[in-house]
Design a protein around this nucleic acid. Structure first.
Lengths: 132, 132
DNA sequence: CTTGGGTGTAAGAAGAATCTGACACGTGGC
DNA sequence: GCCACGTGTCAGATTCTTCTTACACCCAAG
């Protein structure tokens, strides 16, 4: 059931902008091989942690990856990321249709684009051992 | 026969980067309604001609539109653009696969990225009347 | 209480993309 | 000749994005 999704203009824009960057393509490729937490991923792909953090934020804002803060058995908080299985079709029609629903928000800078954070997620789910 | 194309890493990157911009999305949407020439398109979507020129270059470099310099019946040279019918699937697998064929060229600036211009197109095809 | 490993974030430098305004060229019509 | 309307392109200003460095916090182990 890999349904093709039809995003709004702003959504599609975020998705394309997020993926239109070599680093983020590689990050997503790395996560496609399995979930991982930030510090380790940073080491593996040779990128500074704050920088990776920023890229992951962009990917998550586009809905391409999801992160969850988990408690390892050693009690450390670790932020795991994994790809969220998306499927978009990229054709002139899709782009044209999406372009009709573009708000001028889209033109603004990434900093201003923090309107409604529609995802109050982020509950801490411990994975193996609970802190006695 | 709308075959899904599978681009290389650099190609996909150019495509996504080209489409990940609200102006270019609108430009492509405008061209999806029919071919047009630069000055007129600039007037219609309210954008300066040099700027539109730049955006069209980017879209053309990504292979999303094609331009051809034509001679109008009034003898003026006019550059017409139209969308080239593309169809790409955007899934984690596709991106991951593409990421494997990313050259470091991709990381460089847009100016440096002028290696092999693989399209020696651009023959002047007069549309109605030939210059006697 | 210091060290090691995890988290997040902010300030400022560096680099790249975007945008404007001006220039140069060509043709047809008044 | 000059104006209107096409084309292309360049230099510089401006604005975004990217990246580094440095800081603050938490927990467990030694």
């Amino acid at each position: 059931m890999s349904a093709i999704e039809t995003p709004t203009g702003d959504e599609l824009l975020r998705i394309l902008a997020a993926l239109g960057n070599p680093h983020r393509m590689r990050i997503l490729a790395a996560l496609a091989e399995g979930r991982n937490y930030v510090s380790r991923l940073a080491r593996e792909i040779g990128m500074s942690r704050p920088l990776l953090h920023m890229h992951l934020q962009r990917l998550e804002a586009a809905g391409l990856v999801v992160g969850s803060l988990e408690l390892s058995d050693s009690g450390k908080a670790m932020k795991f990321f994994e790809v969220s299985p998306f499927a978009y079709a990229l054709t002139p029609q899709v782009v044209a249709e999406a372009a009709r629903t573009l708000t001028d928000q889209a033109a603004k800078s990434a900093d201003e684009r923090q309107e409604a954070g529609p995802e109050p997620d982020e509950q801490v789910s411990d994975e193996k051992e609970r802190a006695t």
